[in-house]
């Protein structure tokens, strides 16, 4: 009995460590946190950002594994949605950049000076696709 509990705890911990380190590795590869510190010139605060990610991940785990209900006003969802969107936007931008799509594309079609307009196509495409998805595409 005891051995069952201990073993289950051990398995849970092992799974958590694997997923947690994978998550950090993913964030590190994409370099979102360095990019944000570079933009805001807050390199010294980077340890606080680490803890922010850790607490965020733990809060997300609690929210998805337990069923907490907070009974807060729904207006709170606006900044929350915005923050989630910015984060996913950073992820998406980092991914396109890692894949080196733009430099090669710009070189091929000889539009090095208009690359920002092409990038805006990407940005507007993401916004449009997302809005279309939520407002029209999903209809259950």
């Amino acid at each position: 009995m005891i051995i069952n509990i201990v073993f289950t705890i051990f398995i849970g911990l092992a799974g958590g460590i694997a997923v947690g380190s994978g998550f950090v590795a993913f964030l590190t590869v994409l370099g979102i946190i360095p990019r944000l510190t570079q933009l805001t010139k807050t390199m010294k605060m980077i340890h606080w950002y680490e803890w922010s990610v850790v607490f965020g991940a733990v809060a997300g785990t609690i929210a998805s594994l337990r069923d907490p209900i907070l009974y807060l006003p729904s207006l709170l969802l606006i900044p929350l949605g915005l923050a989630a969107g910015v984060f996913v936007g950073l992820l998406a931008a980092a991914l396109t950049e890692v894949l080196n799509v733009f430099p090669i594309l710009a070189k091929r079609v000889r539009i090095e000076d208009k690359i920002m307009i092409l990038m805006m196509a990407f940005v507007f495409g993401k916004i449009f696709g997302s809005l279309f998805h939520w407002m029209y595409f999903v209809n259950e």
Partner: peptide, 13 residues
């Protein structure tokens, strides 16, 4: 807000 934030995040990056 999520959808608008998506664009904002890309511009920020």
């Amino acid at each position: 807000p999520y959808s608008l934030g998506l664009g904002l995040g890309m511009i920020l990056f």
